[in-house]
Amino acid sequence: MARRLRPVGLDFVETAPLPLVFAREVAASPEAVFHALAEDVSGWSEWFSAVTLARPTQDGAGREVRLRGGTRFEETVLAARAPEVYAYRVDVTNAPGVRALVEEWRLTPAEKGTRVQWTFAADGAVPFRLALKLGRAGLGRAFRDAVMALDRRLSSTHA
């Protein structure tokens, strides 16, 4: 059953009870990575294996995302500042136990491309927080694999 989450702002990335932060460098430019994240939303399923559907809504101010296993999200874009930051808040989800969730993708130039930092900032019931802490390594692997696949995709389209 879908539930509406607590509406939080971008500052939740700094204040969330459970912020999980992952980072990785890629060869692609910040502009190319930002384009893939913010402007080619429907392309997410091509490089993020957990995503089965992603599509912009509300003329790009929102997103609908579906994951393997049936989890669904309706989201509001909180920041789309090219090429540095792309962030969104989950407004409605069928995931149990979550109360608030913001994801922020921060891109900074690196010596050989871009440093991609993903913050998964969450709040939820105790069982949700415990599951997220236990699942941290898996979430980190999912991020690493997705960013590596995105980098391969971007290098093949710009080769």
Rank of each mutant, 00 (worst) to 15 (best):
R3M: 08
R3A: 14
R4A: 15
R4H: 14
L5I: 12
P7F: 05
V8P: 13
V8Y: 10
V8G: 14
G9R: 07
G9K: 09
G9C: 09
L10E: 07
F12R: 04
V13F: 06
E14W: 07
E14S: 07
T15W: 04
L18E: 15
P19Q: 08
P19M: 10
V21D: 06
A23M: 03
A23K: 09
A23I: 03
R24A: 09
R24I: 08
R24L: 12
V26Y: 07
V26K: 03
V26T: 01
A28F: 04
S29M: 01
S29H: 05
E31D: 14
H35V: 13
A38V: 04
E39W: 04
V41F: 00
S42P: 11
G43L: 04
G43K: 05
G43R: 05
W44H: 14
S45F: 00
S45W: 01
E46K: 06
W47K: 00
A50P: 00
T52I: 02
T52F: 01
A54T: 00
R55V: 15
D59A: 12
G60E: 03
A61R: 11
R63S: 09
E64G: 15
E64Y: 15
V65Q: 02
R68V: 05
G69F: 00
G69N: 02
G69D: 01
G70W: 04
F73E: 06
E74P: 01
E75Y: 02
T76F: 04
R81W: 02
A82Y: 08
A82L: 08
E84P: 00
E84I: 06
E84F: 02
A87C: 06
A87F: 05
Y88T: 11
Y88F: 13
R89Q: 13
V90G: 12
V92K: 05
T93S: 15
N94Q: 06
A95E: 13
A95R: 15
A95H: 11
P96V: 11
V98H: 08
V98Q: 07
R99S: 15
L101W: 15
L101N: 14
V102I: 06
E103K: 07
E104V: 00
R106Y: 04
R106P: 04
L107A: 03
L107S: 03
T108S: 10
T108Q: 10
T108I: 05
P109D: 09
E111W: 09
K112S: 14
G113I: 04
V116P: 01
W118R: 08
F120I: 10
A122T: 15
D123G: 15
